[in-house]
Design a protein around this nucleic acid. Structure first.
Lengths: 205, 205
DNA sequence: TTGTCAAGGACGAATGTTCGTTCTACCTTG
DNA sequence: CAAGGTAGAACGAACATTCGTCCTTGACAA
């Protein structure tokens, strides 16, 4: 019996997933062909189909991985020292797998995942689960601030959490679409958010 | 000569674009086939190809239309009475073409457009142009608030504007992915944002 | 250590399908 | 009735996937 070390099996999977991810970022899930992935991974069709049973399988695997990284970034924040509410955007900066990409690519891939979630009920459910958990984490953060009197307790923590989550998503969109200019600099973003958070309560024209 | 009334030509275009848009929302640009569009529009291939020279042409037309609607929503805000900063999200609620969809579908389509902008330089440029203009409008709104002392003048208006723009984008993502629950209710969202904006300036744990 | 072997792994041409698009014949309209 | 509009079959290209073949690997006996 010539069974190869299981680490090589995992390495091949990684090789394929990374290549596929690069392709998906470049062209989206459905405009990249299998041949694109094969070329990027420098493997033959037969080789790839040994590790994944279909293209949809590869799509699901890469998307799930991205969501898992996003979830991990939020969960890491829960146990860590509670940051200021205006640091929330930095959470997404942790979502970044070194060998592949800078944070820009991660943001771009997440945009593709959102789009795909609109047509794949399974992926959609996974995404909703991850964001539900993230909302819980951020909601706890908000509630803590409310208890410390740093934030009005009149408004449900969840509503504020939803705003912060939207900020994260919106920042990801900016980063994905506009790239690395001032608009996607997290420090400038945090600065703007801090200014907004210290506005006088009644803002009306 | 049997030239048909020009209004019918425009009506056919509209019919095709609307059908295509519905398909694109349902399945994304590249997972919907021409046959899907033909069936949805209840037209033959020959008919559709009289009005659009390719599928990419249809994609570009629908995407441009969506961006134009987004731009119009922002520009409408510029001339109108200046709303409170926390009303900014309502701007996107105007981006909604009646016969086609509720605001949910518009949000879903915009997510698809974002994803497509990552692979189409032309669409990307258009999107950047629209958002640049929107940033100018929102930036002016922020500057006005700063002049009235409702917002600190220490921070560049653009940075605050970027945060608000991200809020809009993030709200669109929520609306697209999660649908019509509390999280996508603009009133609740505005409520949360208002709470956040009246936080004490030093928010740190 | 080294030679042998069976099974796992990789390849790439082949397959059937589906895609976007075109073409020709027919119909409708002013 | 002529020109514009429509239909739907037909086309080649490109797609995801499979298959037969060959190569590589690790286990094991000597």
């Amino acid at each position: 019996m010539a069974r190869m070390p299981k680490e090589h099996l995992e390495a091949r999977r990684r090789q394929i997933l990374d290549a596929a991810r690069r392709c998906f970022i470049r062209n989206g899930f459905h405009a990249t062909s299998m041949q694109d992935i094969l070329a990027e991974a420098e493997l033959s069709a037969g080789a790839v189909y040994r590790y994944f049973k279909s293209k949809d399988d590869i799509i699901a695997a890469t998307a799930s991985e991205a969501l898992a990284e996003l979830a991990a970034a939020f969960e890491a924040d829960e146990s860590a020292a509670p940051p200021g509410l205006d640091d929330i955007v930095d959470v997404v900066l942790q979502v970044d797998r070194p060998p592949l990409s800078g944070s820009r690519e991660s943001a771009q891939f997440l945009v593709q995942v959102w789009a795909e979630a609109l047509r794949s009920p399974l992926l959609r459910t996974k995404l909703q689960t991850v964001m539900e958990e993230a909302r819980r984490v951020v909601g706890g953060l908000v509630a803590r601030h409310q208890r410390h009197g740093l934030l009005s307790g009149d408004v449900p923590a969840e509503q504020v959490a939803d705003v912060l989550m939207a900020l994260v998503d919106g920042f990801l969109v900016s980063r994905a679409v506009y790239g690395h200019d001032g608009r996607t600099d997290s420090a400038a973003f945090r600065n703007g958010l801090r200014a907004l958070m210290s506005a006088s309560g009644r803002a009306h024209g």
